[in-house]
Amino acid sequence: MTPKDEIHVPINSDSDIVTARQQGRTMALEAGFGDTDLTVISTAISEVARNIVEHALSGEIILRIEHNGSKAGLVITARDDGPGIPDIALAMQDGYSTGKGLGLGLPGTKRLMDEFDIVSDPEIGTTVIMKKWRN
């Protein structure tokens, strides 16, 4: 794996949200994703990066290209060491929000992606791993 295949973007402030989604777009473009997917991927990165800024203050977004046979996909990992999500099932319901969002963040983001997993622990923080496969 060349270093270019994985990018770490530290998330500490709202301007890092823009950096993360632009890096994600660039990586997806190089991997051959189409225009609609590029926007969908950027939007999903924006939502999970904002979750970090609002709930955990700092964390990182890791972007990686994954190959599965002839398929290529973008794997986005959003990791923070914040207070964790006490009730993930509740947080994944449309309309539920503790922050400043519209309550669409996590369930909406899941709809944008092909795969979406979330693990959260008050001791460790929250990690979201999501994938988009190239059509």
Binding site: D35, T36, T39, V40, T43, L104, G108, T109, R111, L112
Partner: peptide, 14 residues
């Protein structure tokens, strides 16, 4: 609003 942006907004539920 660009077509791709409109598409992503609708999927996100915005």
């Amino acid at each position: 609003i660009q077509p791709e942006v409109a598409f992503a907004m609708v999927q996100l539920g915005l």
